[in-house]
């Protein structure tokens, strides 16, 4: 009988890790070509889900940027009832910097204070008739690093500042800072909540879309098991396919977003007209784009893995 004779061993296509990876990738690409419509629908659905998520991220990133601009207005002012010499300014600046969390210090002389006051009262110069620079205090305006601009941090900073010898009156717009901190807390909470829901929705949509794709090919899975394919042999091309679907879906979403951004969002002053500093939206930073692509790959992989578990009976 022919099968009992020693046969010439056929050349194997999947020898070594590289050989196997090459075979499985080729198989996955072939599967995509042979199931174009199903793959298009899957990638389209994933892409839409990621578009919503990336649009939310874009808004959140820009909102953070606006609040960053606003928070730059948070500054602590130390008043002096006399003009400081340049030596005193340097000495106080060093002591203040030693408190920590300071990003910059400006000395506002009495003349500068008068000039600002006059500028603010433009058109009502009569009010300035009896005011001379000597009636105004000189001051040191302290700008703080980002992490020091919140209500609690700034309170601690001011307490430490007041302990510095020679510093008396300190003001920092306590009420405004508190309101700003509350606002930021709300923004972050809402962002986290909405972002969390969106991520859950994306996970749900991607996982189920991939599950449907795999369900539509359950006969293929069954057949491969019948002809003696191992679990790994059946799974790997589907996993590669899932990763590709996830990455391509996320990449398409980013491309759509980039196109929308280039067409009209980048100069959308009207959207942020409440902030003079914001001249338009910025696009997602590369790190977040990479995160979205990585998320696509991971979701594609996990979506395929969990679905395959259900349909492979081996």
């Amino acid at each position: 009988m022919s099968r009992d004779k020693k046969k010439k061993r056929p050349r194997l296509a999947r020898e070594g890790f590289v050989g196997r990876l090459h075979y499985f990738t080729e198989r996955a690409l072939l599967n995509i070509r042979q199931n174009v419509l199903v793959n298009l629908i899957t990638v389209g659905t994933i892409s839409l889900a990621f578009l919503i998520l990336s649009l939310f991220l874009l808004i959140y990133v820009n909102l953070e940027r606006v609040t960053e601009t606003w928070s730059e207005r948070v500054q602590v002012t130390v008043y002096f009832d006399r003009e400081l010499t340049s030596g005193e300014v340097a000495s106080f600046s060093a002591k203040i910097r030693a408190v920590g969390g300071v990003s910059g210090i400006d000395y506002i002389s009495r003349d500068e204070a008068m000039r600002r006051f006059a500028e603010r009262l433009k058109g009502q110069e009569k009010l300035l008739q009896d005011v001379s620079p000597e009636t105004l205090p000189s001051s040191l305006e302290i700008r703080l690093k980002r992490h020091m601009r919140e209500s609690q941090a700034i309170g601690g900073f001011v307490a430490r500042l007041k302990a510095v010898p020679g510093i008396g009156e300190v003001q920092y717009g306590e009420e405004w800072v508190e309101r700003f901190s509350d606002f930021m807390a709300v923004v972050r909470f809402a962002g986290l909540l909405l972002g969390g829901f969106l991520v859950l929705a994306v996970v749900f949509i991607v996982a189920n879309t991939i599950k449907l794709t795999i369900y539509s090919r359950k006969d293929e899975l069954e057949l491969m098991g019948l002809v003696g394919a191992t679990r790994l042999f059946i799974k790997v091309p589907f996993l590669i396919e899932g990763i590709l679907q996830g990455v391509v879906g996320a990449a398409l979403a980013l491309l759509f977003l980039l196109a929308a951004y280039a067409l009209f969002l980048h100069n959308a002053d009207f959207l942020l007209s409440f902030s003079q500093a914001a001249a338009g939206l910025v696009f997602l930073p590369p790190s977040q784009c990479a995160l979205l692509l990585g998320g696509g790959a991971l979701l594609g992989f996990l979506g395929s893995l969990t679905s395959l578990k259900r349909f492979i009976t081996l």
Binding site: A13, R27, Q34, M224, G228
Partner: peptide, 23 residues
């Protein structure tokens, strides 16, 4: 139990692909 999206060649080849045969 044939795969409708694959050609006759690919359907029959499946058994040998599983065994790791070259193209």
């Amino acid at each position: 139990k044939l795969l409708p999206a694959r050609t006759v060649l690919d359907n029959v080849a499946l058994t040998l692909e599983v065994l790791g045969w070259g193209k």
